[in-house]
Design a protein around this nucleic acid. Structure first.
Length: 462
RNA sequence: GGCCACGUGGCGGAGUGGUUACGCAGCGGAUUGCAAAUCCGUGGACAUCGGUUCGAACCCGGUCGUGGCCUCCA
């Protein structure tokens, strides 16, 4: 089985052929750092992290370069800083720290490189110069604007023609634009806004437009043409379309990236897109407060990445239960198990995570019946996908944010209950169980697998 | 208005021209002092109408419905 990926550019699933198998290069559009990310951003992180892991497995960990940028210059950041009365850098640094914690919380590996927009201003102005030089951009009223009609196949990624877009255009047409679809590469800064020396002979200082930072960073870290570019489906137009326009016209290449991948949306209740502007979102931080990160990760991978994913508390709950079973079983599994072919095949088939997870359920059942091969395979397969990343003890010790339980007291009560049970004093035994329940502790009676002895474990109520 | 997805059992969710997806819930059983947890087993589906085909949930067309993009957005 070879890796196949769905390519937005061709609207087909295609066999993945890297430009250079010793250096497979992928780029994903990371966050604009002005606030906590929400779980839709989390889905993108997890999906491309999984792809990163699959590529590393296929081509070797040292043969994959994953660039995921941080956009730290943007109007929303400026607005947030003004609102809080703090320096812009305070907002971007704090939010970047939060973002790193959230990404790690969802078990995402750090990308190979994590470029920041503000560190690539020179590359951005260079692209502006190049585009003006080549007749694909022009200067007007202190702006550098991309000249959309100068690019014959503009709109190929989103499958729309300039005429169509103009027909339904809701964009404000600034008077200095030659064509309504032209977009900003560089714009003047107002006093108090971050600013840099402008390119193309513009005297006033300015700042970059929205799309140019990705062209600059991808070009610098991955080259003029690279393998995979990803992001949320809402980025297809205009963001990725414009990135493509800038990069291809500046570099004179036929493509910017060979494969374009886009993940679908999370849906809030009523099948509505979850988004910041609608306000119907929950943050990754809130998710990580109420469930272990791996449960959130499993929930985010529970439908195929291109499909919409209805988000419910139930989904997170079920995901956590599933992981409970995997953790319990894998605890004493061999570390050198084989990744199950069914799991790997599913992942290689355009990251078919629901199929991979179904295969894991089958392995789990076999492992539960006593197959040590299945058990080791379950562990290896789960690890490939970014699960079972901690010990059983750590997994069990997870607590929701704000919940503190006096474990010494819990242990004492459990011991007292076991003694009461031995005396067949079930009234007392049940009373203690109720007392623990009131503390938010759920008891689980069972038999020790090895000794066969009766034993009681516990967890926080869910 | 233009472009693009999607419509599978109570819920979630893969798949696909002819054979079990899978999970949760339900039901039955095992276990348990009783629960919970766990384990085993099990019923139940392919929006609608036509067409192609020996055979379609899967291909084609119409209809109905839902959602997304076209503006900041993962």
């Amino acid at each position: 089985m070879v890796l196949q990926l769905y390519n937005t550019l061709t609207r087909r699933k295609e066999r993945f052929e890297p430009i250079d198998p010793t250096n497979v290069r992928m780029y994903a559009c990371g966050p604009t750092v002005y606030d906590f990310i929400h779980i839709g951003n989390g889905r993108m992180l997890v999906v491309f992290d999984l792809l990163f892991r699959v590529l590393r497995h296929t081509f070797g960990p040292e043969h994959v370069t994953y660039a995921r940028n941080i956009t730290d210059v943007d109007d929303k950041i400026n607005a947030r800083a003004a609102e809080e009365g703090v320096a812009i850098a305070d907002v971007t640094e704090r939010t970047t720290r939060q973002f790193h914690a959230d990404a790690a919380g969802l078990l995402c590996l750090p990308p190979t490189v994590e470029p920041r927009a503000t560190g690539h201003i020179d590359e951005m102005t260079a692209i502006c110069e190049l585009l003006v030089e080549k007749g694909h951009a022009y200067v007007a009223a202190g702006h550098v604007l991309f000249d959309v009609p100068s690019m014959p196949d503009y709109g190929r990624l989103s499958n729309r023609s300039v005429e169509e877009m103009e027909a339904g255009a809701r964009v404000d047409v600034a008077p200095y634009k030659r064509s309504p679809m032209d977009f900003v590469l560089w714009k003047p800064s107002k006093p108090g806004e971050p600013s840099w020396a402008s390119p193309c002979g513009i005297a006033e200082p300015g700042r970059p437009g929205w799309h140019i930072e990705c062209s600059a960073m991808a070009g610098k870290h991955l080259g003029q043409v690279f393998d995979i570019h990803g992001g949320g489906i809402d980025l297809v137009f205009p963001h990725h379309e414009n990135e493509i326009a800038q990069s291809r016209c500046a570099h004179g290449t036929a493509v910017m990236a060979n494969v374009w991948m886009h993940n679908g949306f999370l849906e809030a209740e009523a099948g509505e897109k979850m988004s910041k502007s609608l306000g119907n979102f929950i943050t990754v931080r809130e998710l990580l407060d109420q469930a272990p990160g791996e449960a959130g990760r499993l929930a985010l991978l529970s439908s195929h990445y291109r499909q919409p994913l209805p988000w419910t508390e139930r989904l997170v709950f079920d995901s956590r239960r599933t992981l409970d079973l995997w953790y319990e079983l894998a605890a004493d599994a061999d570390d050198d198990g084989e990744i199950a072919p069914e799991v790997l095949d599913a992942l290689l088939d355009d990251l078919n995570t629901p199929r991979a997870i179904a295969a894991m359920h089958v392995l789990r059942a076999e492992a539960a019946k006593g197959s040590s091969d299945a058990k080791a395979s379950l562990k290896a397969s789960a690890r490939l996908m970014g699960f079972l990343q901690s010990s059983l003890e750590t997994w069990r010790a997870w607590r929701p944010a704000g919940v503190t339980i006096d474990e010494t007291r819990v242990d004492a009560l459990i011991t007292a209950r076991l003694e009461a049970r031995k005396r067949k004093d079930f009234a007392e035994s049940d009373r203690i169980r109720d007392e623990l329940a009131a503390m938010g502790v759920q008891l689980k009676d069972g038999k020790n697998k090895e000794t066969g002895e009766f034993e009681t474990t516990w967890e926080t109520k869910r």
